[in-house]
Design a binder for these strands. Structure first.
Length: 148
DNA sequence: GCAGTATTGTATA
DNA sequence: TATACAATACTGC
């Protein structure tokens, strides 16, 4: 399922257990692996880009196939409140991991928006990376901070 | 296995 | 201010 947004189309893929992946269309093609959560996620994403603050917390994520460390990092990242930012080190300390590991896990995060990786920044306030899309990360942060 | 990363803190010039 | 090093986890070759 393809979700049109202000930053371009997002590819949504869900399973009976929850969301499998949600990210900007980098994949030339994908399987129409839709499910019962597709509409719900689509609506939440639409509201997000309307400036509302939908809680993605009630949307289940399908972590199957991911390592326990990744799941831990994603779960912790999901708890970051709207408009706030956390440092990789802070997350790492909370999880008992190391900052480097947090970055590695977030780098491979397939849950764009649902796992607000854009709210995770350097310890000194700089943005850090975003899988080659730092501009997108900056846009999201400005969007959440300024409301538009 | 090995190397490259979405990091951080300390040390050195 | 800028560069170098060590330690961790995930991805791709």
């Amino acid at each position: 399922m393809l979700l049109p947004t202000l930053i371009g189309p997002l590819w949504l893929e869900v399973s009976p257990r929850g969301v499998r992946r949600l990210e900007p269309v980098l994949l030339p093609r994908g399987k129409e692996a839709e499910g019962p959560w597709a509409d719900r996620v689509a609506e939440a994403v639409a509201r997000y880009f309307r400036g509302e603050r939908p809680g993605f917390g009630d949307i289940p994520l399908d972590y199957s196939g991911l390592s326990p460390k990744q799941v831990a990092v994603y779960e912790a990242t999901r708890r970051v409140p709207y408009g706030r930012t956390v440092s990789y080190g802070s997350l790492a300390e909370d999880l008992g991991l190391f900052p480097r590991a947090v970055g590695a896990a977030l780098r491979a995060c397939p849950f764009f928006l649902l796992v607000p990786a854009h709210r995770v920044v350097h310890a000194d306030g700089r943005l850090g990376g975003f899988a080659g899309r730092e501009g997108l990360k900056a846009w999201l942060l400005r969007f959440e901070a300024g409301g538009a």
